[in-house]
Design a binder for these strands. Structure first.
Lengths: 328, 328
DNA sequence: CTGAAAGCGCTTACAG
DNA sequence: CTGAAAGCGCTTACAG
């Protein structure tokens, strides 16, 4: 027999309405009765039933999280768990809970998204990635259901999003290498269906352009899968065409694949760079210079942005998270 | 104005009770009216309100997941995300949702655990790790709140748990090495406050015992933190004492730390083994033989066990997940 | 096989 | 500043 608001009301000699107002911090309650009610709650070790509150006020204080398809190694990428940590930390602070669901493909993404939206279980949704013609974004916009997306969407209007400045981060990385004297570049990136891949590639292209270094198309590889294996395989193609002075990649897993290739083939003096600054880099003998994208902050700010908007206390529709080049 | 059970009832010319019975698959409904109700639901695109259902039948069909403290690299360990994936996949199948919360220390663990238990938001809890004198297990037992724990707890009676046979896995690994001719062993493990650390160490000890190989205490290191760094640091201690023929570790991160040490110091012909078979192993030049603990299956079976018990369809209180040595 | 009614534990206009 | 009442959208004994 659980303790309810009625039990508290009886002990405190007030009505259930009053107890409810005390719980929700309604300012119209006198200090005297507030104190009495708190005492009663304490005495009974009363905890409000979150489900009942949700039904009555039509808010669940819960956010839904869609973790995208990843048969690939992508899933061992610490990005997701780090972002989920940031999401959890901000949400805890503001009294929100987080539901997640793992999906294997876009069809499942959409299916579970609908489940979240129609079940009334969550007040808003966090999408962990952005794709070209993203069906999830499309759907949520149509339904006018609150959501935030990690990664700048194609049409950023009327959409909440957080992202790094991927163009700038890659631009700066290439510049750094040019300043070190690198004059021949290879590039390994992920699928151009992702906006962050496009942005990073554009940063690469623009930086070389500005510095007057030509891009060699056969040294530019876009791999469908972001993994150590892909990085390795891409190098086989690259080195069949020539010998770059640096291999710029869009992910540390690709970068480590490249490093493995270099080591296996006893190739020296080729710089390799990546993104994400995964912990594996730190003690690795082969040095990988990497962009720390601050995944945890991406998650943190994503939930912040969404929750602020649910409470109507936000003026902005996006946050840019600072990146940092970690040189090695 | 959301569509409710009443709207459906009106269209189908039945009472709300009947609609409810159709939704919950109550067998006492005639085929004829069942069909009519389904048609009405379809016509209105009706979706039951999960919150209202939860309040009425006192089940939320939601599980709560506590992700333990990890200021350390532990968090980049793919174990967590893989287990969470398994948990999600089984839960989806049986119509359960998953909430997670990240915690920074045992005090927070307990705090958020209480939050879950008292908010009535979840029907059961999944604990991702087991510790010595685990306060969370203690608490949940006292509250008689349903839970499952990944990792065999100290007192396994009246507790649901899933685990590998960590003793056996390590025992087999050591045996394999002995058969290959290894006659001098070093050991790097995690904190002995974790049962899996204890089990793995016992497997190590017993296997050497049986094969008549003595353990050199100064070559046995228990690190508080499971990380690449710790593995490296442990090797500094080990090699100041002598030259083992194999370094057996309880985690691939420790193993990679050891490999890095060997490489940095140009030490060859020392075998290194780990646990988890992380993806980093696959393309790494230095070969790490590893125990694949099947993290995803641990998560999968954990939610299966918990959900089966919530539905009273389970006879067992634990599952052992098979491990597999991946030789390299 | 089906319906009317009470109930799950809250919130919130409305009235005073 | 506080209470009585209706309502949130379901479920489920009870009765027929």
């Amino acid at each position: 027999m659980p303790i309810t608001i009625k039990d508290v009301a009886k002990i405190a000699s007030v009505s259930p309405s009053t107890v409810s107002r005390v719980i929700s911090n309604n300012p119209s309650i006198s200090e005297e009765t507030r104190k009495r009610v708190f005492q009663a709650m304490e005495a009974l070790d009363y905890r409000p039933n979150a489900i009942a509150r949700s039904l009555a006020n039509r808010r669940t204080n819960t956010l839904g999280l869609i973790i995208p398809n990843s048969e690939t190694d992508l899933f061992d990428n610490p990005f997701f768990i780090r972002a989920m940590r940031g999401i959890s930390i901000y949400s805890q602070k503001s009294g929100y809970h987080i539901m997640y669901t793992y999906t294997r493909n876009e069809a499942e993404e959409l299916k579970f998204l609908k489940d979240y939206v129609h079940s009334n279980l969550v007040d808003g949704i966090i999408l962990m990635t952005t794709m070209e013609n993203d069906a999830c974004i499309e759907y949520l916009k149509n339904e006018k259901f609150p959501f935030v997306v990690i990664g700048r969407p194609e049409k950023a209007d009327h959409t909440l999003w957080v992202d790094n400045d991927n163009f700038q981060a890659m631009y700066n990385m290439v510049n750094l290498l040019v300043n070190e004297g690198v004059d021949r570049f290879a590039y390994i990136g992920g699928s151009m269906a992702y906006n962050f891949s496009k942005d990073r590639f554009e940063g690469f292209r623009s930086a070389l352009n500005v510095r007057g270094i030509s891009i060699e198309p056969e040294m530019v590889i876009h791999e469908a899968e972001i993994s150590i294996r892909s990085g390795y395989v891409a190098c086989e193609k690259i080195f069949s065409k020539g010998m770059p002075a640096a291999i710029v990649t869009t992910d540390d897993l690709l970068g480590h694949g490249a490093l493995n290739y270099l080591e296996t083939h006893d190739i020296e003096a080729v710089r390799v760079t990546g993104f994400n600054n995964i912990s594996m880099n730190e003690f690795h003998k082969n040095l990988l210079t990497s962009v720390d994208i601050n995944s945890e902050m991406l998650g943190y700010k994503a939930s912040k942005l969404l929750i602020e908007n649910l409470k109507n206390t936000s003026k902005v529709n996006h946050y840019i998270i600072e990146t940092k080049i970690v040189e090695r």
